[in-house]
Nucleic acid binder design. Structure first.
Lengths: 118, 118
DNA sequence: GTCAAACTACGACGTTCGTCGTACGATTAG
DNA sequence: CTAATCGTACGACGAACGTCGTAGTTTGAC
């Protein structure tokens, strides 16, 4: 079956997204890794939880995805046995213009700096 | 005496400032309040700890200022019995261009949104 | 039906966080 | 000197965090 399935996940509506929570969600290397991965996808593309390789157990991974979802950073839906993830780019850009891009740039700059340097 | 006094405070050098720590430092309402206050000062101006009114005890206030300093967000020096605070604007802008401004804008937008709304 | 894959729920664990209060140190004003 | 001001150090506390492991549930394939 080409299921357009079922189980629901709670997402904060746009107007309930809070800057502090977003910053907190982004202030963790694991979660920043996820966001970086999702940001690299073409607009509208999705990734499963498991294809984003975090070096932790699945329970921990689930936990981090939930933090991102509850902060309003990502959107998650079930698709068969998999759970698909997308950035909530438009909501974030509307609320906090260029915040996401700036943080991702900062992250890229830092990674570059740390790997180039000694 | 017009003392140019004494006690030293540890600050991370620019190249040791980490994005995750900066985001974590900014992901707290109290600390965001401090940063907002300092950002409103003219460049080079300073504020004491006590003139930035946090609704917490002095120990807690000290704690938050230290988190900001150790993350590399602010610069602190003793001046007599007072401790002066400045944003490390140049260091942050050099490492993470426009991050600070974007976060402050996001904060302003959110405050505006939340006070206008119901 | 059975089985495997993908993710969750729940409880545990040690750590960090935000807060407080009390006691203390440094500096300046008299 | 004394006193007042400003901030610190330390210990406490409950809450939240990041991690794990085990025992599930839901789905799709056979």
């Amino acid at each position: 079956m080409t299921t357009t399935s079922a189980r629901l996940l709670e997402h904060p509506p746009r107007e309930e997204i809070r800057l502090e929570q977003v910053l907190h969600a982004l202030a963790d290397p694991m979660r920043l890794h996820v966001v970086r991965h999702l940001a690299a996808l073409a607009s509208g593309e999705e990734a499963t939880c498991s294809e984003i390789d975090l070096a932790v157990t699945k329970s921990t991974s689930t936990h981090h995805f939930r933090v991102l979802r509850e902060a309003g950073v990502i959107w998650q839906i079930y698709r068969g046995t998999a759970k698909m993830n997308r950035l909530r780019r438009e909501d974030l850009d509307e609320l906090f213009p260029s915040l996401l891009a700036t943080v991702l740039d900062a992250d890229a700059a830092q990674r570059c700096r740390l790997s180039d340097g000694p």
